[in-house]
Write a protein that binds this DNA or RNA. Structure first.
Lengths: 244, 244
DNA sequence: GTAATAGTGTCTTTTAGACAATATTGG
DNA sequence: CCAATATTGTCTAAAAGACACTATTAC
């Protein structure tokens, strides 16, 4: 009865188990635009959505993965090499119709990472590739219900950026206030008032100045780092009270 | 190989599937206190955590449940009889250690319902029972990792109550503004200033007066209902900017 | 009348929005 | 000096906090 898999041997009413997957929406800001990392579905015969673009992800491996988050971290590391990015769960989606192979549930995470060194990671048709996001969507058709999952992740990101310090995770450790403001503007797709932005950032004690400046053909900019790199900061108001 | 369950027959690499469950955190405000509905784990031999209290939930039924949310609604209806409550996903938790029967993932929802007619639903030792919440916890030990799940749901509720109209779903369709304010105060465990509260509620066009008042040994109170019962309203600020 | 709760008004404080003014570098 | 960007300041407006005041009913 159980050879390699004692799957259903514990429960008396041997119930059928849904498929369990994890998908990761990896965001980065490249060239003034929000981008998401997509992979190619394998061309193998028995794989659904052959050759289409999809979110990085796959089945939970009950041998390798201690829990869902480490499963997400594993997939993220495999695709980007980034060691400790910002990672947050968006939610889970499950149902009979989302995967032709049967009832499946996916656990969706989103991650923010600084812009990668090589803009498009080498060859344009490689396995993983950055795609720009234009009004809540990406320019390619996605496998499964991944368009819906992506949209939910974008929504979550936009909402949360209004009142948190999340965009700081889109930057390297050291950044100027203008850099930071720029991340907010790119994600929110709207300009933010400089003076109010700075007041707010300082009031929240979000950043602390370091002993460096960034030079240019102008007045050098003070460099900052996060006061508490691990803790995400919540602002008491959104950036645009009037519009909500 | 597959008798009643063609579980692993689709995937070529016959991977072991985690258990998939749904748990629902059902909140209501009873006697000025936030309560959560808990059930008794069955006393059957092969069930873990026999006779302990737990969140209502159980395995996803791939025959009955079209998707995760309808699975949650089914479990909610079974325990409360409430037809269309407020229901929102909190997140999912999965790992090797949370269920003695093996790698499992649970999808957690939380729900808000008006106070039930009978305060404790009949006999005090019945299958389902309301438990008061005192500082982020309930007074009983819970099965599995349900204490953690409950805490996350409470946290989510409290956070969201700061800037949304969620507490309206803890009331019947018709309510006074004092009723509504009271729901906020109970969930947040802190008094709210009456004048500011009213200004805010009206500014958001959250409620509309109906042609009824509630009489008492005092000036009668205007009754209201939600302007858009389906849509949850986001306030531009939290209730207590200074404290965050 | 009194008790009790409903509802309004007034003043202060905080912080965003708008926008101007000043600061500091490279060339 | 000028161009370019960094940084600060000033004024206004919106909305919450605090608290007092008025309103309307049952008794």
């Amino acid at each position: 009865m159980e050879m390699t898999k004692p799957v259903a041997s514990f429960d008396p009413h041997v119930i059928e188990r849904p498929l369990s997957t994890v998908d990761v929406v990896i965001f980065s800001v490249i060239d003034e635009r929000l981008h998401v990392l997509l992979v190619l579905r394998p061309e193998t015969m028995d794989e659904p959505f052959k050759g289409m673009r999809a979110l990085p992800g796959g089945f939970v491996d009950v041998q390798k993965d201690l829990d869902l988050e480490s499963c997400a971290r594993r997939k993220l590391q495999e695709k980007t090499g980034v060691k400790s990015p910002y990672l947050e769960q968006v939610g889970s989606w499950g149902g009979i119709k989302r995967d032709p192979r049967g009832w499946s549930a996916t656990h969706v995470y989103f991650s923010l990472i600084p812009a990668p060194e090589s803009p498009s990671d080498g060859t344009p048709n490689s396995d993983v590739k950055w795609f720009p996001i234009a009004n809540q969507r990406v320019g390619t058709k996605l496998a499964f219900d991944h368009a819906k999952l992506l949209e939910a992740a974008i929504q979550r990101l936009r909402n949360k950026v209004e009142y948190t310090s999340l965009p700081a995770y889109l930057l390297p450790e050291e950044f100027t206030l203008t850099d930071l403001q720029h991340m907010y503007e790119v994600v929110l797709e709207r300009p933010i008032e400089k003076s109010a932005f700075r007041t707010r950032v300082f009031a929240a004690n979000l950043v602390e100045p370091i002993d460096k400046v960034r030079a240019g053909a102008n007045r050098p900019a003070q460099l900052y780092r996060l006061t508490q790199p691990k803790a995400i900061v919540y602002f008491p108001r959104t950036f645009s009270p009037r519009k909500i």
